[in-house]
Design a protein around this nucleic acid. Sequence first.
DNA 1: CGGACAATTGAGACGCGTCAAAACTCGTGG
DNA 2: CCACGAGTTTTGACGCGTCTCAATTGTCCG
Lengths: 220, 220
Amino acid sequence: MEDHARFPMHRERTEGLDAIFDSMATQIKVGQGGTIAAQGQPADHVFRILRGHVRSCVYSETGDRSIPQFLGSGDYLGLVGARAWSSSQEAIETVVLASMSRTAFETALASDPVATAEVRVRLAEQVDAHARLLALMAHTSAVERVQAFLQRFAASRKSNGYVSLPMGRQDIADHLGLSMETVSRSISTLRASGEIELRGASFFRIPSPCDPHGHIAHAA
Amino acid sequence: MEDHARFPMHRERTEGLDAIFDSMATQIKVGQGGTIAAQGQPADHVFRILRGHVRSCVYSETGDRSIPQFLGSGDYLGLVGARAWSSSQEAIETVVLASMSRTAFETALASDPVATAEVRVRLAEQVDAHARLLALMAHTSAVERVQAFLQRFAASRKSNGYVSLPMGRQDIADHLGLSMETVSRSISTLRASGEIELRGASFFRIPSPCDPHGHIAHAA
DNA sequence: CGGACAATTGAGACGCGTCAAAACTCGTGG
DNA sequence: CCACGAGTTTTGACGCGTCTCAATTGTCCG
């Protein structure tokens, strides 16, 4: 994505969320399927994703699972500042995180107006993303939902070649409000109509209209 | 939660969102169906609802309407701080608002840590509300969605008598991702099973299990 | 190469959307 | 006070899309 402050050297970047994490966080690693934070538990840590993807899961009393969002590199967990996690944070694949205590984070935030503004922007983006997902679930068919999901995911990882789809079919189903079978059928339909190309079950790409198939090289 | 305006006594309350609006906002009135702010337009004002209810509408390119949330007295419009409105704000009924310019609001925020924290809490609540709605739309039938909606709405206006339902059936449908007809049918089903009681089309109440002062007609 | 799990495909049932018409509400004017 | 008309709500009939249950195929790792 972007090249943040990769250099923890003597920079003038003493403000902002990244700066807080760069100077105060410790790096941890969570294996595939591991739970980073559990719904209902005290939120005494805040995280920044350095590598890998995370699913936010909301479990209902009846045991049903919803996934309001997937998170990737550069995203934060716990910015809302609530005392307890309202959703579980689970590692879809092996994930590397920057972790720091919530009390330290809140203290740093209090004296950093830039970071405070950044938190607000991030939360606003989250609200918008949820609203877009609600609109998607209300007005579109299964195939359209899956197509929109794949397009958005591919766009978030601008690569012209095949892109990895780290989450399973059930994860996508719980994100889009569909059954796993319907997700699978929708993907098959999209492949049959040439809207997407698959390599295995977890690599795909969206061919350009003018690029029959084969790897996009230069011109965009 | 926190010690909000628990004490309406003399001052001491020079900070907080309410204080900002109390001291700087002007009061305006919008008639039923009126548009307070239009999606895509510059967000140069921030509002606080003093009376009445507002629907936040997201219009898609195809003209479909989604209503991610309804807002009532005490709720704010425009806290996200984006340059443009990502949804239209429309008056369901005649609405009274406290209005102030965004620049003045942002200036006041910058020197008011209490209000800044409040903004974060409000945005976090909004994220949670959207996540709950997503879960509702993903895992429940039409009747269950309508029931949950009515319960939540009734709970937000704690009155044991009949409560006004200011929004129309189409509004509820666009909120829950259903058709207007299905919402109507669901309400009829709930009435027939005694889960709700209606007076006209826009007043309802949820009888207690032991039925204190209503009359459950013929038992189910 | 084999076993466990994930993904795909199939068949049938049911819920919700769509189209259509009737009943109701409420404001307006005779 | 009643009658009228436009908009809203309710009810009905039918088709289609998605869920459920079930079996098969595919994939990854030991």
